[in-house]
Design a protein around this nucleic acid. Structure first.
Length: 107
DNA sequence: GTCGTGACTAGCC
DNA sequence: CGGCTAGCCACGA
């Protein structure tokens, strides 16, 4: 059985849960999170979930970047996001994570 | 029930 | 290399 009531805002929760799993010093991409949720084409919804994330400091949403390495956006400003990532030991050049593959965390 | 929005991605010029 | 377009999903009004 599958109560549809469980399928309403679970997606967002799942996104936050996965984001919380990202260890310090590593990053992930929106597409990667979507893939982990069995919805590789929902990367758009993933971004929405993070944007509305009510667990701001609890969920390290700043560890989620774009597939092209760009830090993407941030509710408090991409600049702040870059600062946090840099503090974690991640190298960011020209607003991009380099080398991205070395910091990507596989679920 | 329908429409618009967004922290995205890949492709094309 | 840089900029633009179209397509995709979930959520709120």
């Amino acid at each position: 059985m599958m109560p549809k009531s469980l399928t309403n805002n679970l997606f967002s929760e799942a996104v936050w849960a996965l984001t919380k799993r990202i260890p310090r010093g590593k990053v992930s991409t929106y597409a990667q999170l979507a893939k982990a949720l069995k919805k590789p084409q929902a990367y758009r919804a993933v971004g929405n979930a993070l944007n509305k994330n009510p667990y701001a400091p609890l969920v390290p949403c700043h560890r989620v970047v774009r597939s092209d390495g760009n830090v993407g956006g941030f509710a408090s400003g991409s600049k702040k996001k870059i600062g946090l990532l840099t503090k974690e030991g991640i190298k960011i050049i020209n607003q991009k994570v380099m080398p991205l593959e070395k910091f990507i965390y596989h679920f």
